[in-house]
C-alpha cells in the first residue's frame, strides 16, 4: 500500500529518463533549428579536397593516422590524390591551410559528440597562434 508511492515515483523517473531527448529539445528551445547540422565553413580558396567529400566524411581520421604513420615513421610526405594532384602530407599546412579548425573541425566534432581527438596534443592551429609559435609544426 504505502510502497505504491515509491513504485510510481520510480516508474515516473524511468519514463522521464527514457523520454529525456524530447524534454531536452524543448528545454533548449529553438527546437526547430536544433536538428539542423552545424554550419560548416568551407574553404573559399579551394574547390576540392584531397579526396571526395564522402570519403573524407567517413574516413578522414584514418587518412590522418596513415599520414602520421608515413611522415613520422617513413619520412614520406608526398600524397597523390584521387585526381592525380600532389599534396604534402601535413595536417597543419595542407588541411588547415584551407580549413578553419574552429569553424570546421571543432563544430562538427562538437555536434556529433566526438571528443577532441589527440591531433591537437602535438599540432596547433595556425590561424589562432599565427606569429606566436612555441612548438615546431611537424
Amino acid at each position: 500500500m504505502r510502497d505504491r508511492v515509491w513504485i510510481f515515483a520510480g516508474l515516473a523517473f524511468f519514463v522521464a529518463a527514457l523520454t529525456c531527448p524530447a524534454w531536452y529539445a524543448v528545454a533548449n528551445g529553438k527546437a526547430s533549428n536544433k536538428s539542423k547540422p552545424p554550419n560548416l565553413e568551407l574553404p573559399a580558396n579551394q574547390k576540392e579536397c584531397v579526396a571526395p567529400a564522402g570519403t573524407m566524411r567517413a574516413a578522414h581520421m584514418q587518412m590522418l593516422i596513415q599520414w602520421r604513420e608515413d611522415v613520422v615513421r617513413h619520412g614520406d610526405r608526398r600524397f597523390v590524390a584521387f585526381n592525380g594532384k600532389v599534396y604534402e602530407k601535413s595536417l597543419t599546412r595542407t588541411c588547415l591551410g584551407c580549413h578553419n579548425k574552429e569553424q570546421f573541425c571543432d563544430r562538427c566534432h562538437a555536434y556529433s559528440g566526438v571528443s577532441d581527438p589527440y591531433c591537437w596534443n602535438c599540432h596547433n592551429d595556425p590561424q589562432t597562434v599565427a606569429g606566436s609559435r612555441t612548438r615546431s609544426t611537424p
Binding site: P21, A25, K34, S35, K36, R57, A58, A59, C108
Partner: peptide, 16 residues
C-alpha cells in the same frame, strides 16, 4: 561507415 551527421539529424528529428 555511416554519415554521423545525418544519423544525428535523424535522431534529433525523432526526439523533436
Amino acid at each position: 561507415r555511416v554519415d554521423i551527421l545525418s544519423v544525428k539529424q535523424f535522431a534529433l528529428g525523432l526526439a523533436a
